[in-house]
């Protein structure tokens, strides 16, 4: 009896180990974002074939969309991009404008948009798309605290992404972070344009990107500028960096997030 139990336990341990090592950070390919500090923190850049989450408050949805578009543009500029979103998110934060996307430097010819009637359909479509290795990136845009997007769903997405090599980007607007198997988790807010004349045209998109979870490294917070011509994130030129980076040795995402919420 006890031998049998030990055997079961050993085999379970073995399978857990295999699951854990399957998507290990060290064998994941990475792509540099272009922002030096962030790349250093991410050990070279954003991991491909993994799930990344971007959270934003309701009124910051366009900023988060821009950030996701930037990540997608970095990850795979030449392969098809499938953007899955709910009907509701279109009403709440506007439809994805293709002209705007192409002005950020993405190729609109590679974009396929799916409007899912509800979260379940969106999730299933995204899982399907992730299994298709012809794609570069799958963006899943979900509005609100979707109950369906739990640890199990997240694990499924991670496995599908690892198997096919497609990168999954989750855009979670008006949602609270919950446990997931995402490789990184970001909270994005809009940042001011660099100071200048108030009547002067503002330039490239600016993001206040906070990395609140990084499975294989420390976290931080940076101001990033999206360079539309080179399709790169950049340190903004002539921008005072008022924000101290979160201490690298204390990477507790929940605490960091809660503190940020109180501050804002």
């Amino acid at each position: 009896m006890s031998t049998a139990r030990t055997g079961t336990l050993a085999s379970l341990r073995g399978s857990i180990e295999r699951l854990e090592t399957h998507g290990d950070a060290h064998d994941l390919a990475r792509i540099a974002l272009g922002h030096k500090a962030a790349d250093a923190m991410l050990q070279g850049g954003l991991a491909l074939s993994a799930v990344h989450e971007v959270f934003a408050e309701g009124h910051q949805s366009a900023t988060a969309t821009g950030f996701i578009a930037g990540l997608a543009g970095r990850v795979s500029p030449r392969r098809p991009l499938v953007w899955v979103r709910q009907d509701f998110s279109e009403i709440e934060s506007g439809a994805l404008s293709i002209s705007g996307l192409s002005e950020l430097g993405l190729d609109p010819r590679l974009l396929v948009t799916v409007r899912a009637p509800d979260t379940d359909a969106a999730l299933r479509t995204a899982a399907d798309a992730l299994a298709c290795d012809a794609l570069g990136v799958v963006v899943l845009e979900v509005w609100g605290q979707a109950r369906q997007l739990d640890l199990v769903a997240s694990r499924k997405l991670t496995l599908a992404a690892a198997a096919s090599g497609v990168t999954a980007l989750l855009l979670r607007v008006a949602a609270e972070p919950r446990p997931s198997t995402a490789e990184t988790r970001w909270i994005v807010r809009a940042a001011h344009s660099p100071p200048g004349s108030p009547w002067h045209a503002w330039g490239a998109p600016m993001f206040d990107a906070q990395l609140v979870r990084n499975r294989h490294g420390p976290v931080g917070r940076w101001i990033m500028e999206w360079n539309c011509d080179e399709c790169l994130f950049r340190e903004p030129s002539a921008y005072p960096q008022p924000l101290a980076a979160t201490p690298a040795h204390r990477p507790h995402p929940a605490a960091a997030y809660a503190g940020q919420r109180r501050a804002s």
Binding site: S61, A62, T65, G66, A69, E90, S93, G94, A95, L96, S97, S99, G100, L101, S102, E103, L104, G105, P108, R109, V112, A201, W202, G203, A204, P205, C228, D229
Partner: peptide
């Protein structure tokens, strides 16, 4: 997409003007 995938892949979009900030929004209300 089922019927126009090939046409969309060939579509000629207006060229982006270099070093110009985005002139059109990313999210557009219907």
């Amino acid at each position: 997409a089922q019927h126009h995938l090939a046409a969309a892949a060939q579509a000629a979009w207006p060229e982006r003007i270099e070093s110009e900030p985005p002139l059109r929004p990313l999210r557009l209300f219907d």
